[in-house]
Design a binder for these strands. Structure first.
Lengths: 215, 215
DNA sequence: TCCTGTGAAATTCTTCACAGCC
DNA sequence: GGCTGTGAAGAATTTCACAGGA
């Protein structure tokens, strides 16, 4: 990501900032539903377990959205954050692996509701291929590259056994996917222009274990 | 966590450090399986996408486990990290919510294999109560507190709709649970002696969306 | 007066660099 | 010669504190 290409992000944005923006967005949506017209950095901070200065600093990387003495317009700030996060459009998502986790995800409401459109599902198991999950039929993973290219999928969710995750990730990268959400346990090696996030259940459980063992 | 109570952790340990220890452990297990007797900080760093200095610093918070000029004994370091993370014992886990995600988790191999023993599963739906999931029968969530206390469960996995997550988290805290893995989207308010980690699918997808929108 | 936006200070985390031991 | 352990330096992130506009 070059620093000077985008009119929005002038300098590199830290991951914790993006993470908090996602939280703020959720709160803003709640506030909007509750009919609140404006909101202060202090109120956002309160629900997000952070400080008002942090909220203002986070937002300041992207512009000046508030009014001194007043706070932020709830609707306008919501729209701004949605735009910043790239949520002012839909993204095409494929799910690889139609096992327990993969199929739970495929049927997950929140996905489509939040602009992530599941356009393809893949599995190796011939017994699963051809079945429908929430309106999308399961394809043989053999056809991964061709189908991903044809669908122009941008994001892939990886819910496959850890020993095949790396191989699939490489194939996805070559097929033009630039973002991967990985549910396996080992870190993936991917080209520099591919972003990987992992949902590592084992790691989270171990962090909890550490907290319990050392309290 | 008091600084002076434990013989292991002399100063407060940063979360990124714990996170990396969990990664190192996974690599060490791979190295052990591959029959490697020793391993250097550089090798661990390489697979973990970090630096050798970082690996040594992380370990140095807990002791001196290596031999200069040689590296670390694979088996010994594995054992040390397991002990540091509290994985030299089993933890009793309850799963609340036997929907798609909850039941996928209940049947998840890796859980028991890594010392997290699922001793209870709860749901509100009377149609689900009484059914077995991987050897554990689903209990009515009404009996949550009593059963959690009786089982002496230490960790809870929350896979319930977001609007009830806070209520369940409060009940779990009162029933003696000190660690919660939350799959819902809103941050939970819990007493200071309860650790919460969240697996927030929406947030991870939004971070990917941000990366795509700003690359 | 209230609350934002932001440089400056403080804190936290990572990297450097080297003495010390195998 | 190779690799650890660790203070010190450097970088990144958070918090402070206050000027300034509604």
């Amino acid at each position: 990501m070059k620093d000077f290409t985008s009119p929005i992000s002038v300098k590199r944005i830290a991951e914790p900032t993006v993470r908090r923006l996602s939280l703020y967005l959720r709160f803003l949506e709640d506030f909007e539903k509750a009919g609140r017209a404006t909101i202060s950095s202090g109120e956002l901070a309160h629900v997000g377990h952070t400080t008002s200065a942090q909220v203002r600093k986070d937002l300041s990387f992207f512009g000046s959205f508030g009014k001194r003495g007043l706070g932020y317009d709830t609707g306008a700030l919501t729209a701004q954050i949605r735009r910043i996060l790239g949520l002012d459009r839909t993204w095409k998502v494929v799910i690889v692996g139609a096992g327990k986790i993969g199929s739970a995800l495929a049927q997950h409401r929140g996905f489509r509701e939040r602009g992530f459109d599941v356009v393809g599902i893949f599995d190796v198991d011939p017994h699963r291929v051809g079945y429908m999950l929430d309106g999308v039929s399961i394809s043989d993973v053999k056809g991964l590259e061709a189908i991903v290219r044809r669908l122009e999928a941008e994001i892939a969710v990886l819910a496959v056994p850890p020993e095949v995750a790396q191989g699939i990730a490489t194939r996805l990268s070559k097929a033009g996917v630039h973002a991967i959400l990985d549910f396996s346990t080992e870190p993936l090696k991917v080209p520099a222009d591919v972003t990987v996030r992992s949902m590592n259940l084992a790691m989270e459980m171990e962090i909890l274990s550490f907290a319990l063992a050392n309290r």
